[in-house]
Amino acid sequence: MTLMATPEIRTPVGAVALRIRGLRKTFGTKQVLKGVDLDLHAGEFVTLLGANGSGKSTALKSIVGLQTADEGLIEVDGAPATADPTKTAMVFQQIHLVKRRSVLDNVCAGALGRLPMWQSLHPWLFPAALRQEAMHCLDRVGLADRASEPAGKLSGGQQQRVAIARALCQRAKVVLADEPVSALDPNASEQVLALLAELATEGLGVLAVLHQPELAMKYSSRLIGLNKGVVEFDLPTPEVDMSMVDALYSGDQK
């Protein structure tokens, strides 16, 4: 039944880039994460699947500190995730670029975490080396020719690729993507996911949340099924049966 999986998906070989153990989070009386364990290796593209409200976004937000987990261990590159925030980047469905600023300035902003204060007062002060590195990142996502345009002028798919270039300019080891293609048309979706998968083969760890099982199976090397805050399955894509995925979404939705 796993016909959608493409044959060239590789098994992970890199070191553990992200390690999560026993992640718990409760909102009021509602247990949203009930002890989630997860390993993401460098070079892997892992997709988190699950129904609305199953806790996917909460898990990703806990990793980057937009939420504080009640309990659990989160390590990035062998150290607590809070030790070096520049190692983790996140892209969102809403993309979150500063639309008035140029594409290049947006990409450069990814590097703010390692820039001295005086050079980060205004884009005019960004060092030439950073601008050059940002151009490299833009080239990597195929948008170097759009560098000087306001980010808001680009199409949704292009803007999402700029957001990925910003993550690259941040020199992140792990990229989290919360529904990165939910607002994109099918063609742009494929482009963005192919890009993320390609970056993974170059050594990045990618953990995505997708609501399209077919795309998840096509591009990710491993699938994790989350059901009401519990990891239901965590398997290499070829071993995942479509019926397992269907079961994730069939539970009574509260």
Binding site: V91, H96, V98, R101, L112, S120, L121, Q170, A172
Partner: peptide, 17 residues
């Protein structure tokens, strides 16, 4: 939030976001 996740401080996120 994106910039903060990437390690930018309060002044930087104010000036760039």
């Amino acid at each position: 939030d994106v910039l903060r996740i990437g390690g930018a401080n309060g002044v930087q996120t104010a000036l760039h976001a």
